[in-house]
Design a protein around this nucleic acid. Structure first.
Lengths: 176, 176
DNA sequence: ATGAGTCGTTAACCTAGGTTAAAAGTATGA
DNA sequence: TCATACTTTTAACCTAGGTTAACGACTCAT
């Protein structure tokens, strides 16, 4: 049984309206979520109240707080940017199935590999690229990103302020 | 069979002297490496020749280029910072065993989970923390880091220049 | 329609960190 | 021992991006 089948068997369907939270930083949430409709953002709030966006989630994406799966509190929040539908799959079912069924286990491996590669790419971009280069890469990877989320959120995803992103866009126009 | 057992059965022992490469950026290398002795650094070289350190590897750590496992070229190089011993385990053995043996599969899941959490932590630090805070966190996580690698390499791991790290250290002393 | 709230832009000013270069400290090897 | 080479520090100057604040454009809820 692969993960999608597992999600359909054991998953609970959630319908959430725009601006509602799937889970919040500091809570526990030992489930994996699959996006079947809508757009979400996963973000950290720092002690002094600043928001930093970890990732955007689109249809087909899967997300969980790894720390929460390990019994700790979520290190980030997950918010619907528009009306969303999700499948909520408790991690215990995944673990149970993976320890018993080899197809599930390999499906989890696939998922983790894909996740790891994404995180590795993001690490690479923060380590080696300027904010402008990260913005260009984002546009290449997700050309319609400006239709999906606000520019302020794009900035907070890139690790810069909305003011800085506005400046970068302006300079790009002038350059060309 | 878990991963260590697999590495012992199918793994090839490598003894490498200081400054030798396990693999280089641009090459193919479809193996997983387990460090049994020594210290290494994994790093990117940018087009204009600058070095950016992805991670340091110590005894017990496991590493592979995920891209290379997927048939692409390595996106980074792996260099011994002193004489090292490694176990080299071709990924195909892992895949074969994982698709057949559930214990191996779950062992791979464990490994990927741990890896993912590390990458997520690093993403968090780049996204939300200043260079000084990242340096403090590193010292907390790896108090003996200055004994293991040069300060220049620590700077390149933190995503700043050696000059900047020297400045940060100086200011820290003055502050206290 | 009107007021309140968010969004994006712009400007002025500030700061963390980059760049270059020089000098001092530390290893290493002939 | 001396020389060569790397590491670290320091200084001077530069730049990307942060901060604050103002303003116009849009969205809403009333």
């Amino acid at each position: 049984m692969n993960l999608s089948q597992l999600a359909e068997m054991y998953g609970e369907s959630l319908s959430l309206s725009k601006m509602s939270y799937v889970f919040s930083q500091g809570e526990k949430s030992d489930s994996i979520y699959v996006v079947t409709e809508g757009v979400l953002k996963a973000f950290y709030i720092s002690e002094d109240g600043k928001e930093y966006i970890k990732s955007f989630l689109f249809v087909g994406d899967t997300i969980a707080s790894l720390k929460a799966l390990r019994g700790n509190a979520c290190s980030f929040s997950l918010l619907c940017l528009r009306d969303c539908k999700l499948l909520k799959l408790p991690y215990k079912y995944v673990l149970e199935n993976a320890s018993r069924d080899i197809e599930t286990a390999n499906s989890v491996i696939e998922l983790l590999m894909a996740f790891s590669m994404k995180k590795e790419q993001r690490e690479y971009e923060f380590l080696c690229l300027s904010a402008e280069q990260r913005y260009q890469n984002l546009l290449k990877r997700t050309p319609n990103i400006h239709q999906e989320v606000t520019q302020n959120d794009i900035a907070r995803y890139l690790g810069i302020t909305p003011v800085a992103l506005s400046r970068i866009k302006k300079l790009r126009v002038i350059k060309n």
